[in-house]
């Protein structure tokens, strides 16, 4: 089936319905493209690193607008494109379209929400059921999720990943050796890369929830020196200020969903890495819930009066 990517991009930008067949073709093409990518993709500077999007399509459009746009800028997205927001499908498809249209300018890394299990609970599956009446489109997208890479390395100096480090991973080559084309397992290195969190801990620690790792400065320092990189850029955790550097600048959390869940009031950030590896953060705010004509473009969280008991 022929595919007019520019036409689809136009539809998506307006939040309009995209036909099931079109999504199918789009997903198939994306898989073919992603299949050829390594687990850890090489990316050149200058590049803009973006954190969680979570289906906030209008904020994603702001992100592109504030950071130069895909025509002029290279991007690395750190995952969590879907769930929570009301436009998960449009956000994810827009990124796929850009990837197909400008393959060298967009790198997509898998987040912990790019899995069948999580999307069933946190909104993406429900959104597809609402928009299509069946779950075919959800299945096509999940197939693409399995091909997303696990990380990226910028100029051999900055390691990008969604969650964090794993005690099973010492070198980047160990990530390259993972068989990534599968649903994210509940344990193992692949799971840790998408789930673990930095914390002020002395050594590898178990999360009090009973699953998942926490890592501290010593683990970060060790990883940086072993792999001769100077920064770990990750997303995964909400930061009010849009980004947060930790461990003497050895790790940064980048968060790109402003006013998360339409009510947190946080700002969002993207991180631009220049050729000399200088870090420039761009901060942006959420779009207004209404357009100029007073039409709602995102649902407002204004309290609805009710006779609760």
């Amino acid at each position: 089936m022929s595919l007019d990517i520019d036409a689809v991009i136009d539809l998506l930008k307006q939040g309009k319905h995209v036909k099931e067949e079109t999504v199918y073709t789009l997903c198939l093409r994306s898989q073919e493209l992603l299949m050829s990518e390594a687990n850890v993709t090489h990316v050149d500077t200058p590049v803009t690193i973006c954190g969680d999007i979570h289906g906030q399509l209008h904020d994603l459009l702001t992100l592109f607008e504030k950071s130069g746009g895909v025509e002029k800028t290279r991007y690395v997205f750190l995952g969590d494109f879907v769930d929570r927001g009301f436009y998960s499908l449009e956000s994810f498809l827009l990124l796929l379209c850009y990837k197909l249209r400008y393959p060298d300018r967009i790198t997509l890394i898998r987040g912990n929400h790019e899995t069948r299990q999580i999307t069933k609970v946190y909104g993406f599956y429900d959104e597809i059921m609402r928009k299509y009446g069946n779950c075919n489109v959800w299945r096509y997208c999940c197939e693409v999720f399995d091909y997303l890479s696990l990380g990226a390395i910028i100029n051999n100096s900055i390691f990008c990943v969604h969650g964090g480090l794993s005690p099973e991973i010492n070198t980047l080559d160990e990530i390259r050796a993972i068989d990534r084309k599968q649903e994210v397992p509940h344990e193992g290195a692949m799971c840790d890369l998408l789930w673990s969190d930095p914390e002020e801990v002395d050594t590898w620690s178990l999360s009090p929830r009973g699953a998942g790792f926490l890592f501290g400065k010593s683990e970060v320092d060790k990883f940086l020196s072993t792999n001769n990189v100077e920064l770990i850029a990750r997303a995964h955790q909400l930061v009010m200020e849009g980004y947060k550097e930790m461990f003497d600048g050895g790790l940064v959390t980048v968060w790109s969903a402003p006013n998360y869940c339409y009510r947190c009031g946080n700002v969002a950030a993207v991180l631009r890495i220049e050729d000399d590896l200088q870090r420039n953060y761009t901060i942006f705010e959420a779009v207004q819930p209404q357009d100029g004509g007073g039409n709602a473009i995102i649902p407002t969280k204004k309290p609805q009066m009710d006779y609760f008991l």
């Binding site: 005690p167 344990e187 178990l206 009090p208 699953a211």
Partner: peptide
């Protein structure tokens, strides 16, 4: 899935020096 997660062979508290939760 905590039990399954912890039982997975990789968590060797001695070798990996992993702190308990």
């Amino acid at each position: 899935y905590s039990e399954k997660w912890k039982k997975s062979k990789r968590i060797d508290h001695q070798r990996d020096q992993v702190d308990q939760e």
